[in-house]
Design a protein around this nucleic acid. Structure first.
Lengths: 143, 143
DNA sequence: CTCATTGTAACCGCTATGGTTACATCCATT
DNA sequence: AATGGATGTAACCATAGCGGTTACAATGAG
């Protein structure tokens, strides 16, 4: 499917910010996060920008500024993060419309769409049940 | 996520073959299927090749030859098709390993993996519940 | 022998992804 | 007012996946 890593990196970032905050540091820089994620700061800033649009984090410019959580991690579900960073559907339809003269070509898209809709609904239900706070607890329990 | 259309096209192909079979034509050519799907025959052959590896269809070469269903559509679930054409996972991990010196970097992958595993399990459960026979019935009911 | 068909390699254009550089903009501090 | 650390964003790159296309060898029925 050519899966991307954005949900993983976003969860990593938010969990890191939560832990950092619990240490008394409510402000994080993209540089700091990028060191934990092991990537380029610009990648983190792009991603944090999407999270900001979704209202999950806030940012301030200038010296000593950076990023902070907009609400408690207990209230942030993986669905919130997923919707912030993954706009598209899970399964694609035909690139070019199928042959509508053929009964199968005519009816296949609505038939498959209803299957896909149901699957995405259950995916969302699953994602709703895990908060970033829970992810952070699982992360810290790994050691 | 950059979703592909393979599950859709494979379901379309199998449903078409089932309908064709019910008309007394157990053999389909990639050319015929490609006309309903509205694509190139080679695309269909590549896909049918994967379905053959999964034991869902059979093929014969030569003049007048082609592809046939290996078992009844009632016994073919969307999970069978999904596994035949979609090898990879739904969500990706970090491209390069995160910083294991950081508690979050150290624990994030197992934590996320268990979430992803659970999601894929429910996806599979959903896909198991729909057969291609049911898809074909839905398709024909659209008209 | 002929010819329809599979099987497969090779290549193309398009898009997504993530990494990188560069630089304008902002703003706290001095 | 100047400095410097940080965001915000554009631009470019390499890589990979996807689906379309051409080409052609291999097969096997008639």
């Amino acid at each position: 499917m050519s899966a991307n890593s954005r949900l993983t990196i976003a969860a990593h970032t938010l969990a890191w910010m939560g832990l950092n905050e619990s240490f008394g540091h409510p402000i994080a820089t993209s540089e700091q996060v990028s060191e934990s994620v092991n990537t380029n700061p610009v990648v983190i800033r792009r991603l944090l920008g999407q999270l900001r649009e979704a209202g999950l984090v806030e940012s301030r410019r200038g010296a000593g500024a950076g990023w902070s959580l907009a609400r408690p991690l207990e209230s942030m579900t993986l669905l919130d993060v997923y919707e912030a960073v993954e706009p598209g559907p899970l399964f694609g339809m035909h690139r070019t419309p199928p042959n509508a003269e053929c009964p199968v070509g005519f009816g296949i898209q609505p038939a498959m769409q209803s299957v896909y809709d149901e699957i995405e609904d259950t995916l969302r239900a699953k994602l709703t049940r895990t908060t970033i706070a829970q992810v952070l607890r699982d992360v810290l329990a790994t050691r």
